[in-house]
Amino acid sequence: QEKPEIKPREMNMSEDESSSSDEEDSDDIEDHIHGEDGSMDRTEHDKEMDDGDEEEGTQWKSNLMEIAAATFRRIQSERVNYRKLVYGQVNEDDEGDDDVDDELGGLFKVLKKKSEKSTSGKLSDNMVDCSKLILDKQVQLQDWDSEEIQKTIKDCFVTGEWAKSEDAA
């Protein structure tokens, strides 16, 4: 029978590991990174370790993988998924249907002009079709008189700092 778990101690071992356990090793890491199975493994894993006769000194290594997995998850969640932002479903609740139209003599409907706010929220279906970015309306123009903000683009120019790799001087 194969070994049920790989102990942290063995992870430090070098080339003499058999290929089959190498595979298991990588599977194990994947399990820990993806999905809930990883956490299941963990409890088993910890129990096994308590049973074993290990010195206290190597204890810190036991949750290395857990730490790695946690860091990985954190980075993954911090990174904004721009593809999803662009292509994802737009959650817009139809505000337009909420307001009840007045009826004139039970025959004509009086359309109310919707307030500015609700239309701008609905991805501006009837806004001006323009490719130019209209600053101060769509995006706030930064205060380019201030030294601080001027500094943020100083290396865009040839007169600015160059990356080490392309610096001729």
């Binding site: 943020t152 865009c156 700092e161 080490k164």
Partner: peptide, 8 residues
């Protein structure tokens, strides 16, 4: 020792 480039 270079700090990050200011590229906007």
């Amino acid at each position: 020792e270079n700090e990050e480039l200011q590229l906007g």
